[in-house]
Design a binder for these strands. Structure first.
Ligand code: SF4
Ligand code: SF4
Lengths: 132, 132
DNA sequence: TTATATCCGATATAAATTGTCGGATATATT
DNA sequence: AATATATCCGACAATTTATATCGGATATAA
């Protein structure tokens, strides 16, 4: 409960890795995977996903790889998590409505409040706060 | 990612239900299950668990059921989640160490910080804030 | 004695997460 | 042009976690 997924962690590990390099140099999937002991294929998917979200950009071909494209300082954690994993919410009735209890639920409103607190907390931190 | 489990939700629903009744009256599993459309056996387990944690107490026999035992105002949400679901942590390396990346991980410390923020947020609210 | 309730280990099912495979496309280098 | 190295991407498999069910016990009010 309340855990980050590996995909998010791998994304952050990769971003931090790239952040430590000069702006124009690229990092290949293999380089990152071996460096941090991450399964290659999964990391590949993860990086492709971040590229599609314009957080990083892909350079094809040999000597290719990825480099950071967005300003990490301007992406807050709530945004980032949503880009990588989809909608955030302590309960899924906040963005989807197939809960058997929804009609009788007596805690939906209070949990909404906690949810808002949590999201605000993530909004108050940028990706750069982690990768620096 | 970052979702409460049903067990936690069922616990809170039940607590809120009991809170709305007079101090000495008890609520049976069946009563709560039918009222909120929760699978009976699961709710039973959930209530047993809370009883073992001394949050509620069980009254056996016919006309039995559960009633609130602890001061909900004095249980903060972090405590409560831990009682119901076990240790809290955005990553499991914070209370368990079988992560393939742990030796090379470059984000462990920053994530610890976020984790602390999250736990503090939950500590700042009591169960009663939800059940009231 | 009976009916209604909790108790609780074992097991089954479902869903989400995590990881793998196969084969495609792009491009720098030779 | 050929080759090697890289990203790309859909489909699939395995694993783990969460959710739900079953069977049979114990406690007690009526
Ligand atoms: S139980 Fe209540 S809060 Fe939880 S998902 Fe269902 S409606 Fe939302
Ligand atoms: S990847 Fe890093 S932060 Fe995540 S569990 Fe492993 S060691 Fe901890």
């Amino acid at each position: 409960m309340l855990k980050l997924t590996r995909k998010v962690e791998y994304s952050l590990i990769a971003l931090r890795h790239m952040q430590g390099k000069s702006i124009d140099s690229v990092s290949s999937t293999k380089e990152i995977a071996t460096r941090y002991n991450i399964p290659l294929e999964i990391l590949a998917k993860t990086l492709q996903h971040m590229a599609k979200e314009n957080i990083i950009e892909a350079i094809n071909g040999p000597r290719g790889g990825y480099r950071i494209k967005a300003k990490l300082k301007n992406i807050n954690l709530a945004e980032f998590f949503e880009k990588v994993e989809g909608p955030l919410g302590l309960s899924d009735c906040f963005y989807d409505a197939n809960c058997m209890q929804i009609e009788y639920c007596n805690i939906r409103t209070p949990i909404q409040r906690i949810n808002a607190n949590m999201i605000n907390m993530f909004r108050s931190m940028s990706v750069q706060d982690i990768t620096n």
